[in-house]
Amino acid sequence: MTEYNFAYLDEQTKRMIRRAILKGLAIPGYQVPFASREMPMPYGWGTGGVQVSAAVLTPEDRFKVIDQGADDTTNAVSIRGFFERTAGVATTTHTEEATVIQTRHRIPEVPLREGQILVYQVPIPEPLRFLEPRESETRKMHSLEEYGLMHVKLYEDISRHGHIATSYAYPVRVEARYVMDPSPIPKFDNPKLGDCAAIQLFGAGREQRIYALPPYTQVVSLDFEDHPFDPSKADHPCGLCGATNSYLDEVIVDDAGGRMFVCSDTDYCEARQAQGHRGKDAA
């Protein structure tokens, strides 16, 4: 078996990704093209996040991977195992202990701190893609700050449904300039994007884009004066830890319509239970 380089990628590829990350940080919300490599895992399964993580990890880091907020979902387990093997880094499930966190679809409940890096896996980095499928056109729209189409789409939702009918991957405006896709996080997580103490990096492997939010960047979810952004979530406490302020998974517990709600952030939920918090469904 051939020995792979530290964190799998060769140094030249890492330099290319590192340069893209720096430009991404210098132009918050702008999607930097990068020559994404073929990774030993499928496109769409986190290859962008994996390449960004590989480019930022040092041997001393403590790495956490979550998918849907949980450390033990199969793809999170797989990616964590990949870096344990190829980078030899220590791993953790505790948000506070981690220095680099790779995530799919969630931002941890515990506020992140300085010194931490949150790496998002991004499927479709272009927030305008579903309005305009052509890259050549959306690039022009970003360069001209032509975001009217996005507002029209959101407004059409309101006229049809009475609400903006986007509940995840809810678009944001960064520093009053670029409209950015925050990856398919629930809109509940959107408020955590702005003024975050950690560095946030976004990697889209198949679409070959990297973008970034430096700490304490102004990030505003798109809305209208008469229809302000609403980050609400299911109105239930967690069945296990009783938390009322966390994002919840709905679990079907029997075939008679029984269901319960539990924290999607498993580390947060376990920590609360360890502190003695109990929900109504806890043992």
Partner: peptide, 19 residues
């Protein structure tokens, strides 16, 4: 040790650019 040294240096540069 290029992989580790470059990784450390990059983190310094990235933190500098981000902050």
């Amino acid at each position: 040790n290029p992989p580790a040294d470059a990784a450390h240096a990059f983190r310094g540069v990235m933190e500098a650019m981000a902050r």
